[in-house]
């Protein structure tokens, strides 16, 4: 077994364990805490005894706690999420389109910003002390540190209400009744709605990538190997390319981690723009106490992070020629 395989196996085991613990924490929060939501669900509302028994049976609340736990585990891990209370639909049927809607907004935004901001950041770092560098840092700091819903509100007020360039809310106009994903997404109307949330997401994430790339290049700029490259007669741009290549790894790792946190990062963005994604659905479900939906959505979010963490570690160990996989990868 090579070092890399051993490393991979260890990370994999850790991820599985983490998933189990995370899922258990969700279970504890939802079932065991005093006044837990499932209890509240039963006791609230004007239900008669029969209905209560029926609901308890339906959600397995009449069984002993360990049984509930086992049932819960097996159902989550096999992606059997049960029925949504409010929507009277299988949870997966509710979540699946929402998941797709979130992905179609956030993945392109993240990729766009990772590429553009990193390039800009590298250029800014190379020209340290320039106006461009200062301006780009200040503006991205502003965008990154301001809570995303405030940026979103500003964008709505300026671009939707005052300039009327794009609609403020929703993913399609109210009259549209598309059928299937292709019809939903492949239309000008969708693109029109897409514009503002996409822009806000891109700008919101720009700060981290820009700074990461800029610091990386600043750090490399004074390095010995770049001095040798310079002595070889490489042009400024060729040198910058080498400095950039040497700063890629943290950016790549960070991108992967961000990708994992994609569903939980921009919940408020979806809320403000009324984007029918998984984040907004989760907030609605919490407000309306639709707990099967909540636990499924939280589980998906946690799983995404764990998988991304795993991917980041493996990528790091794989791509860095100088890291021996055994000790490599930040724990």
């Amino acid at each position: 077994m090579t070092k890399f395989q051993r490393f991979l196996l260890k990370r994999l085991a850790i991820s599985v364990l983490l998933t189990l613990v995370a899922v258990s924490v969700i279970f504890v929060v939802l079932r065991l805490l005093p006044g837990s939501p499932f209890e509240a669900l039963v006791t609230s509302g004007n239900l008669n005894q029969e209905q209560i028994t029926e609901i308890r049976a339906m959600y397995g609340l009449d069984e002993p706690m360990w049984r509930q736990y086992v049932n819960y585990l097996t159902s989550l891990l096999t992606f059997q999420f049960g029925y949504s209370i409010l929507r009277s639909q299988p949870v997966w049927a509710v979540l699946e389109p929402r998941l797709i809607n979130s992905l179609i907004l956030l993945v392109p935004a993240l990729v766009t910003t990772a590429i553009l901001s990193s390039l800009l950041g590298m250029y800014a770092g190379w020209n340290r002390g320039s106006r461009l560098e200062k301006f780009s840092i200040v503006s991205t700091t502003l965008l990154r540190s301001t809570p995303v819903f405030i940026t979103a509100i500003f964008f709505i007020i300026v671009f939707a209400y005052n300039l009327e360039l794009a609609p403020a809310l929703g993913m399609r106009s109210i009259r549209a009744t598309p059928d299937g994903y292709i019809e939903t997404f492949a239309s000008l109307d969708f693109l029109h709605h897409y514009l503002l949330p996409f822009a806000v997401a891109v700008l919101y994430y720009s700060g981290d990538f820009l700074l990461l790339a800029r610091n990386g290049v600043v750090e490399k700029r004074g390095s010995e190997f770049l001095k040798l490259h310079r002595a070889k007669g490489l042009t400024e741009m060729e040198q910058l390319a080498r400095a950039g290549r040497n700063s890629m790894l943290p950016i790549l790792t960070y991108f992967t981690l961000r990708l994992g946190m994609i569903f939980q990062g921009l919940i408020l963005l979806e809320v403000v723009f009324s984007w029918p994604g998984i984040g907004r659905e989760l907030v609605l479900a919490i407000q309306q106490q639709d707990y099967p939906l909540v636990q499924a959505a939280v589980f998906i979010m946690a799983l995404a992070v764990i998988l991304a963490n795993l991917a980041a570690d493996v990528l790091y160990a794989y791509f860095d020629p100088t890291v021996s996989a055994s000790g490599g990868g930040s724990a």
């Binding site: 850790i14 364990l17 983490l18 998933t19 613990v21 995370a22 924490v25 969700i26 929060v29 939802l30 805490l33 005093p34 006044g35 837990s36 939501p37 509240a40 946190m261 569903f263 939980q264 919940i267 408020l268 984040g279 989760l282 907030v283 919490i286 106490q289 909540v294 959505a297 939280v298 979010m301 946690a302 992070v305 764990i306 963490n309």
Partner: peptide, 21 residues
């Protein structure tokens, strides 16, 4: 591993849940 755990539990939903009850 504990930090990994807090990373994987999504902040906003967990906070919302805790604050509901």
């Amino acid at each position: 591993r504990l930090t990994d755990l807090t990373f994987s539990l999504p902040f906003m939903p967990m906070a919302l849940l805790l604050l509901t009850f």
